[in-house]
Simulated scan of single mutants.
Amino acid sequence: MRLNSAIAKNGMGATDDFTQFYLSCSYSVVEKHIVPGSPTKYFQTVEMNYFVVDAFAQKVFSTASIEAKGVGNSEEQASTAAIRQVSPTNTTLASFIKESNMKIIKYYDEQYKNIIVKAKSLAKVYQYEEALFHLSLVPEACVGYQEVVEVAAGIYQKYLDDKANKALAKARAIWNAGQDSYAAAEAGEYLAEILPDATCYPDAVSLSNEIKARVKSDIDYYRKREEKQEERAYQVDMAKIKAWKEVGVAYGNNQKSVYYYRTLY
């Protein structure tokens, strides 16, 4: 939590979501001795080592070290007291975080075109979520952010269409096999997954009208379809950006164990 506070206080975003770069720290005791007197006191000098790590390349991106001193009734308490001396506003730590932030932005300024190429390649093999994940990592401060947003919007549309086409195919198969109220209800579950932004949405509406006319029963999905259409039909650009980023972030969070638990140093 102290690291999150330090990051937030120095102009960077602190998040529990998976990102390419993350801040970590370790410490080592460089000096210790017992302070004479009663009760016995322990004195320690601790070196705090801060790392910004590139999770993809599995290497340390930047580092900083800060020494702090602490006294306690045990060696453990002395270490804890020393660590607590390094506040989120520590000038060395603040400078390190700000410089790391600038280096990270510079990295994306230089790499965003390669990230776009990778995302497009992933999209060609239907790996839409992974593609959106990589695009979602590019910060708004990057010079190519707007280009990234435009590419992401196109990939997100393909992602929506892919999901919608699969849902529509399942709905049709279920309806064609049953053509009764049970089939209508089950098909409706899949049709409800199809957003108005999907290219096949008119086909979904046509199928739902066909089912409703045939079954002639007040099944929830068909009764509420118009409400859902109005609710989902209009999305401002920021809402769309949030939508594709959420897909990418969700994919990334499932990759934490792949990257975070390797030995880095």
Rank of each mutant, 00 (worst) to 15 (best):
E129H: 02
D218T: 06
V71Q: 07
G154C: 05
Y182E: 14
S100E: 03
G154K: 13
G252Y: 00
A68W: 00
S206Q: 14
V149M: 06
E186I: 10
G154R: 07
R2C: 07
Y261D: 05
I83Y: 01
V71P: 02
D180F: 04
A167D: 01
N49V: 07
V151G: 04
F43Q: 10
R172H: 04
K103V: 02
T40Q: 15
N253F: 05
V247Q: 01
K106T: 10
Q255E: 12
A55K: 02
C25Y: 09
T45P: 01
Y112C: 12
I97K: 04
E67I: 05
K158P: 00
K59A: 09
S87H: 11
V149F: 03
K103N: 11
A6F: 06
V138Q: 00
V117E: 13
K242V: 10
E246A: 12
T89G: 04
K98E: 06
I174L: 08
K224Y: 15
Y112L: 07
Q229L: 14
A184P: 01
R172P: 00
K98P: 03
Q229T: 13
P202C: 13
N49E: 13
A78W: 03
R214V: 08
V149R: 04
T63R: 06
L132R: 00
G178K: 02
E231M: 12
E47Q: 14
K106S: 15
G37H: 02
R223L: 14
Y261R: 12
C25R: 11
E140G: 07
H33I: 05
T199S: 15
N73E: 15
Y251S: 04
Y145Q: 12
K113T: 15
M238A: 15
V143I: 11
S257G: 12
Y260G: 11
Q255A: 13
Y190Q: 04
K124N: 14
E110V: 09
D180K: 08
C142H: 04
L195H: 15
K228T: 02
T19W: 02
V138Y: 04
V215P: 00
P139I: 10
D109M: 14
I34H: 06
A94H: 06
K118L: 13
V236Q: 11
L264Q: 04
K98C: 02
M12W: 02
R225H: 11
Y128M: 03
T199R: 12
N165I: 05
S217I: 10
F133R: 11
V71S: 09
Q255M: 15
Q235N: 11
K113Y: 09
A243H: 03
C200Q: 07
R84T: 06
D16H: 09
P139W: 13
K9Y: 06
I219S: 08
